[in-house]
Nucleic acid binder design. Structure first.
Length: 379
RNA sequence: GAGGGCGUAGCUCAGUAGGUUAGAGCGACAGUUUGUGGCACUGUAGGCCGUGGGUUCGAGACCCAUCGUUCUCC
């Protein structure tokens, strides 16, 4: 089996946007792509069949930290990896748990050799090091695995961010070494993506990009954004990273974002995205549609019997009405969570598919401007 | 018929020894959510405190009457 390959299909002439294909041992991904988040082996409220048939997800995410705690490695190993365990034969990417260093800040301690986490489930303590995070990701068996990094909050002091970045770089070397020492477990290739850090400091970001680029990885990720900065800062630093990361490798902007964030970042040269927003916000009643954003709990939808999203080709978006969706949410019905998740993910996947088509057609920038205006409206 | 309990926000109820603009939970309405611990979080509106008298500087609290409701006994 072969390492991940990235092929550029088309590049914009008046921006950084590009269309490409990523080939993995579990199939091809057409970029730019959005990857639904399935932290513990489940894209919450959505079945694998729906992911394929309704949403057209090409790759999904898992999370090392969460899968390690549940169902635990012995189960995943016995199952033959996460693909078989959850019944998903398309590509999977696992995040390393680096983000949990940030999001579970109250329950961990950072040391040079790794991070000691206190489990949010039973309070037990676990050391996550670059080495054992690689081992864990070997057992989970994702096609793309992420380096173990530290994601400092924004704002953070320069000295802290610099030290944190150095630590992330040191850990990166250890990740590569460990991966080289250990064989693929399930007969297909696992590909390590390093992660750029450096906070909101241009010199650090640039240095991090250079260091990450020097590793010659098959793909590269930008971390440490969408953690408290303004939208302008996020775009500025995304642009800076794109300029300083290899052109011929996929670029993954971690944790981003809103639909309009994604369209802007595509224009800057990003190929891959993931975000909990379509699923988590969907479960809280925020519906993304091709016409704009809906808070489905609002009274104004109570008697609106128009389709949830008349602009999507997706069957579910045509079949159910806004009024029915509001009813499901007000009544706290489980089906509402499911339909909202499917709608939002369908929309995200539709949107990046449209972006790809317009990149190939050569009119991405003008399309992007009008599309952002349309989809960011509050309905 | 006799005796007792209870009437405070849409609902369920708190309201200390009578002391400024009467509170909570739920519900309603709205806002937030960016490499997912947490169908979560934040806010706003909504009350002649059943009604009418009285005591008092001051009553949701005390007294009288009245209406409603509920329980026990005959």
């Amino acid at each position: 089996m072969a390492a991940l390959q990235f092929e550029l299909v088309k590049e914009s002439t008046n921006g950084g946007a590009r269309a490409g294909t990523i080939t993995t041992d579990h199939g091809v991904i057409q970029t730019p792509i959005f990857m639904p988040v399935g932290t513990i082996g489940s894209v919450k409220a959505v079945t694998q069949q729906q992911l394929k048939q309704d949403i057209n997800a090409q790759i999904i995410l898992g999370n090392t930290y969460h899968l390690y705690l549940r169902p635990k490695m012995e189960v995943l190993e016995a199952a033959g990896g996460l693909h078989k365990f959850m019944g998903w034969d398309r590509p999977i990417l696992t995040d390393s748990g680096g983000y949990q260093v940030f999001s579970l800040a109250n329950n961990r301690k950072i040391k040079p050799e790794g991070v000691i986490f206190q489990s949010h489930i039973d309070g037990s303590k676990h050391l996550f090091s670059p080495e054992n995070v690689m081992d864990i990701q070997r057992t989970i068996g994702a096609d793309i695995i992420m380096a173990f990094d530290e994601c400092p909050p924004i704002p953070s002091e320069y000295d802290y961010v610099r030290k944190s970045m150095d630590l992330t770089h040191t850990w990166l070397d250890k990740c590569f070494n460990r991966l080289a020492e250990t064989p693929d477990k399930y007969g297909y290739t696992q590909n390590l993506f390093p992660i750029v850090q450096g906070g909101l400091y241009k010199d650090l970001r640039k240095a991090s990009c250079e260091y990450i680029s020097s590793k010659g990885a098959v793909g590269n990720a930008i971390g440490g954004l969408s953690v408290g900065e303004t939208m302008e800062e996020m775009y500025e630093f995304t642009a800076l990273c794109c300029e300083n990361l290899p052109k011929d490798k996929p670029r993954y902007l971690m944790g981003v974002g809103t639909p309009w964030n994604i369209l802007e970042a595509i224009d800057l040269g990003i190929d891959m995205f993931d975000c909990v927003m379509p699923t988590r916000n969907g479960r809280n009643g925020m519906i993304f549609t091709s016409q704009g954003v809906i808070n489905i709990k609002n009274l104004k939808w109570a008697k609106d019997f128009s389709p949830l999203d008349p602009g999507l080709p997706n069957e579910m978006s045509q079949y159910y009405t806004k009024a029915y969706m509001r009813h499901l949410f007000v009544a706290d019905e489980i089906l509402g969570l499911e339909l909202a998740s499917i709608q939002n993910l369908s929309f995200y996947l539709w949107l990046v598919g449209q972006a790809r088509e317009h990149i190939i057609a050569g009119d991405y920038s003008s399309w992007k401007t009008s599309m952002i205006e349309q989809i960011s409206k509050r309905l």
